[in-house]
Design a protein around this nucleic acid. Structure first.
Lengths: 160, 160
DNA sequence: ATGCATTTGTTATATCATAACGTTAATCGT
DNA sequence: ACGATTAACGTTATGATATAACAAATGCAT
């Protein structure tokens, strides 16, 4: 619930707030938010869009922060592992988490026109899928939920 | 609903039945179920597991049906496009459709121990995700729903 | 049989991701 | 503070997944 992102919002504040919250959590959990990791997080927060690892790597390279794929992938692995970012499987791309810190099972709404990604919440073990799983005796541990469609802005916009 | 696959079933009949149904549908829709396409479909039906494009290509190569990646990818594209198979995005792999012909929005239960894949049904525009989408003014066109966990057989089995 | 669309075979290359390993830097117990 | 241990980084190389492009073959309607 409480999707944000397709409607305009205080983006600078959104970035700063998320960064601050994540910094605090890293400090508390004794996680090293190193320069590369921090920069990758900033890059992801900049957009509410999914970026490929090589897009991120290009930006890092421009800034002299690293030039080889493992640099980007390692930073992304760190962010994903600790819930500060998510991978969009459909796109082989990554987004900053919209609810960092909170324990959550993310679901995504991906606009096929503007590529904006909004993070929503689900409880994968419940609902229709949960019923199917229960019937089959299947224990759901986590779920990838990625909906593709058209966002409000793009639906209203001029280009159909 | 009506998940099948983790419990034992008449597998030979399951393959033959699906093949026959798909052949009929191709005939009716004037789709060319060429030798390569048909063989790829058979390979997928053989397992209720997801196979990578290159796994399939290896088998085709052994049988003299094609040796270069586009051969496998084109056959898979055909099968996916017409709903005879699905791609599991999490795994970059493909499974035969369990409900060919029927108009459906597939969801998958993937066992992380035995790699078995069961296809269930969802209505992506409804339920929790649908509510989020409605709130955000987002129009869902299709959704990737892939749950990972442990199937009944593996949960009962000896290895934890 | 002819013409058009679809499929195939093949080469080449794009894109996404990780293994491996030596070096540097942070952390921790003493 | 010191050395031991663990974590992160830089780099090279390679693996895995996927598609572009184009020529040759095939199917199919007229």
């Amino acid at each position: 619930m409480d999707p944000i992102g397709f409607s305009s919002h205080d983006h600078a504040g959104c970035i700063a707030g998320n960064l601050a919250r994540i910094e605090a959590r890293c400090k508390q959990a004794k996680l090293q938010l190193t320069p590369v990791r921090r920069r990758v997080l900033e890059i992801l927060l900049q957009d509410h869009r999914a970026l490929g690892a090589y897009d991120i790597l290009d930006r890092l390279r421009d800034e002299g922060l690293g030039s080889q794929p493992p640099v980007a992938y390692r930073a992304l692995d760190f962010l994903v592992k600790h819930g500060f970012a998510h991978k969009i499987e459909r796109m082989n791309a990554f987004v900053a988490c919209a609810h960092p810190g909170e324990d959550h099972a993310p679901a995504f709404l991906i606009c096929r026109k503007c590529d904006m990604v909004v993070e929503a919440q689900t409880e994968p073990a419940r609902g229709q899928l949960g019923s199917s799983a229960k019937l089959a005796g299947f224990l759901i541990e986590r779920a990838v939920v990625e909906a593709e469609g058209v966002c409000l802005n793009c639906a209203e916009g001029p280009q159909s």
